[in-house]
Design a protein around this nucleic acid. Structure first.
Length: 272
DNA sequence: AGTGCGGCCTGTCCGC
DNA sequence: TGCGGACAGGCCGCAC
């Protein structure tokens, strides 16, 4: 599932395809994504010169001087570059024809993704307006986490997955960062001291940056015609090891339970 | 205000 | 072996 690093790698993959160019046509095969694909998208985007491809949380923002395409890959979305004329397969919902016999095509089996159009500053769009700082940006640090956590009784894992606290942290990387920081995922967010939040902020940055770096090595093949982008295999230390897996640090069998409706994996000994 | 939960959707996996 | 059902997952939007 595309987490922030995959979305960032996707951004880097499509940026050189789009910036300075125009989409000549948008074709909607199935408008039923998380929200209906608005007609305005096919009406407004074509013909506009694209000046930027940026990312905010897990949203991709394709900017023109008339408005912005907002893309979200949900949990099963991916973009591929295919030749013009290739009929869409099952689960391929949307085409952005690039006018050079190439088409950027959105595939999303579960349709949790979105493709929207806004004529205004995308950062004030309702979906983006309340997002917290980018975890890899300058405004994110342990002090801020600590401050925002004051009085909060929700589990710290739920807390850091709240986009208003920090943008774009999904389940996998929340698990990994908490493991690296030695913090129990179910601990109340408001009962963690500043130095531990500093560790957590560092761990989050570190694990995300590592994953992006790793994804970068597969960037060459990204959005190639033969399928999914290289969703990379950063070595996850806890997530996916749940049942019977052992902590690499102490050997204790990892615990697995649902916290905030999300499966969580942690070392009951190293994480407090 | 903060918290928790329902719902959207389908591929995969598990148990029978 | 085949089938049905549970589950996973991001994240909005509602209810309390």
């Amino acid at each position: 599932m595309p987490e922030l690093p995959e979305v960032e790698i996707t951004r880097r993959g499509i940026e050189p395809l789009l910036v300075g160019r125009r989409v000549v046509a948008v074709r909607v095969y199935n408008a039923r994504l998380r929200w209906p694909v608005p007609r305005a998208l096919a009406r407004r985007l074509p013909g506009r010169e694209i000046h930027s491809v940026t990312r905010r949380a897990k949203y991709l923002l394709v900017g023109t001087d008339a408005g912005t395409l907002i893309l979200h890959l949900g949990m099963s979305g991916s973009l591929r570059l295919v030749p013009e004329g290739l009929p869409p397969e099952r689960h391929e919902h949307l085409d952005f024809a690039l006018g050079d016999r190439r088409v950027l095509r959105l595939r999303d089996p579960r349709r949790f993704g979105a493709a929207l159009w806004t004529p205004r500053d995308p950062l004030i769009h309702p979906l983006l307006r309340h997002l917290g700082p980018e975890p890899l940006g300058p405004d994110f640090d342990g002090a801020r986490l600590h401050r925002m956590a004051r009085g909060r009784r929700a589990a710290v894992k739920t807390f850091i997955m709240d986009g208003r606290v920090v943008a774009g942290v999904g389940n996998i990387y929340a698990n990994e960062a908490l493991y690296r920081a030695g913090i129990h995922p179910a601990r109340a967010a408001g009962r963690i001291a500043l130095p531990r939040y500093e560790r957590l902020a560092g761990a989050l940055r570190e694990v995300l940056a590592e994953a992006i770096l790793q994804g970068g090595t597969t960037l060459r093949d990204f959005v190639s015609s033969d399928g999914a982008p290289g969703y990379f295999s950063i070595r996850l230390r806890v997530y996916g090891k749940g049942v019977g897996g052992a902590c690499e640090r102490c050997g204790t069998v990892l615990a697995s339970r649902v916290i905030g409706q999300r499966s969580s994996v942690y070392c009951p000994r190293c994480q407090r």
